[in-house]
């Protein structure tokens, strides 16, 4: 069936099988492979994207559910390759990533946190990250990155 939605601010119209997951549509059909799939039980959070402004797990959502909506992936965080979102800069500056696999989901989740809570403390960040697993960093520099990214987002707004 045909669906239309906004993907990273660009209109998209695609034919999908109804059983297609949003993560598969984004990765396989639309070739935006920044959204990763790290588990099959909706826990790791590598696939987190924004749908209508909210962070969701794209591996646990049908693509057809995005029909008429707005989807943003990690590729849509910065306007051009030259730019970076303040949260992307913060992750790089604070060594908030190692292998890079969880990173897109972490970024999307972190930005949603700051939208809901512009100045989160460490405990709030750690609690919010319940749905994002990282196997490399021990989370310490992710937390540090999000504190810095939130500050930069506040300064920018």
């Amino acid at each position: 069936m045909q669906i239309s939605f906004s993907l990273n601010d660009e209109p998209v119209t695609v034919d999908v099988d109804p059983s297609t997951l949003l993560s598969d549509l984004i990765r396989e059909q639309l070739s935006l492979t920044g959204t990763h799939v790290g588990c099959d039980t909706s826990q790791c959070g590598a696939c987190v994207v924004h749908v209508n402004g909210d962070s969701v797990k794209s591996c646990t959502m049908l693509a057809v559910s995005a029909d008429g909506g707005e989807v943003r992936t990690v590729e849509g965080l910065s306007k051009s390759d030259a730019d970076l979102h303040p949260m992307q800069i913060a992750f790089r500056e604070n060594h908030g990533l190692q292998c890079g696999f969880c990173t897109p989901g972490m970024l999307m989740s972190a930005i949603d946190l700051v939208k809901n809570n512009p100045d989160p403390n460490e405990a709030e960040i750690r609690e919010w990250l319940e749905g994002n697993i990282c196997r490399c960093t021990g989370y310490q520099n992710i937390v540090k990155s999000i504190i810095a990214g939130a500050a930069a987002m506040r300064a920018a707004s």
């Binding site: 990765r27 492979t33 990690v74 990533l97 696999f101």
Partner: peptide, 21 residues
């Protein structure tokens, strides 16, 4: 120095095996 590899990873531009067609 900030990591060279992060320039692609924070943009979701890494290339993992599952990404390859």
């Amino acid at each position: 120095p900030k990591r060279k590899e992060d320039a692609r990873f924070v943009r979701g531009k890494g290339t993992y095996v599952a990404d390859i067609k």
